[in-house]
Amino acid sequence: MSQNVLAITEQAGDHFRKVTYEILSEGKRLAAALGGSLTALVLGSGITELAAGAGEYGADRILAADDDTLAEYTTEAYAGVCAGVIDSESPAIVITGASTQGKDLMARLSARLNAALATDCVALALEDGQLMASRYMYGGKILADVRLSGSPQLVTIRPNAMAVEKTAGEGKLETVAVDAGEPRIRFIEKKMETGKVDITEADIVVSGGRGMGGPDFSVVEALAAELEAAVGASRSAVDEGWRPFSDQVGQTGKVVSPSLYVACGISGAIQHLAGMSSSKVIVAVNKDAEAPIFAKADYGIVGDLFEVVPRITEEVKKLKNS
């Protein structure tokens, strides 16, 4: 086993996802603490040029697995390449983002490599060369410190939880031979909502709840547009069919930790609070002064969201133009 860290990057089209910069930065910190180096593994098709950019965030070596069979993420093809690289590189730690790709990939790899896995971690530390990971359990109601043992140790990192540091690594680019074999899973098509930022990745999330009173989210959408934010929803808004499931914040939806979370017409059920209370700053707008959301909010406005939210949008617009 080496003392090195392997970071598995992830791109959306022609750029790395933000969480990739977070895992490279965290990977660099861990590698420094271990006295080892950071290697980035970039998988995809036509990604060699993109891969070189990992050096600006601390990668000492960059392995590019550039092959048509990796154009779209599929579990088996990606797990096969990653397992091969892990076998030859013997990293102490393998780190990736807690995205839909990262969580899927690492779960499969943990079984293939018989390796410890801590997923969706918000902090990492080393104790006697072993990883200690902090991660939420019980839908965000408990924060647990877990110790990983064995080798390698696998972790996925919650988006927006760790600081990005631009530190130059040597960035030596190497190519990885890819033999995907005969994958059993076949990619058919991808249906993306253009321009939509996923709530787990957004820096700002503006959410609407039961107080929206119906499927018209235009006041929330207008504020989100002004803040370049993603639009989220409470479970009741989703259950009513006002918003898609992919927008749901909470214990049975997505957990978000943006720098700013604006809750509009959301009373603050415990399952919802579990999904957003690790946001850095929380704003609540609700006409019920007794709503539990106000106990969690840094800033609260008691009032009718249909009057208040458009005014906030106007003020943000003024601020941007000043």
């Binding site: 801590a118 408990i142 410190d145 110790r147 690790s278 106990a295 969690k296 840094d298």
Partner: peptide, 16 residues
């Protein structure tokens, strides 16, 4: 391979 060493409640938000 993964052992819980400690559990704590998330930092209470004071806010309000």
């Amino acid at each position: 391979l993964v052992r819980i060493q400690a559990m704590r409640l998330p930092p209470e938000r004071t806010g309000g």
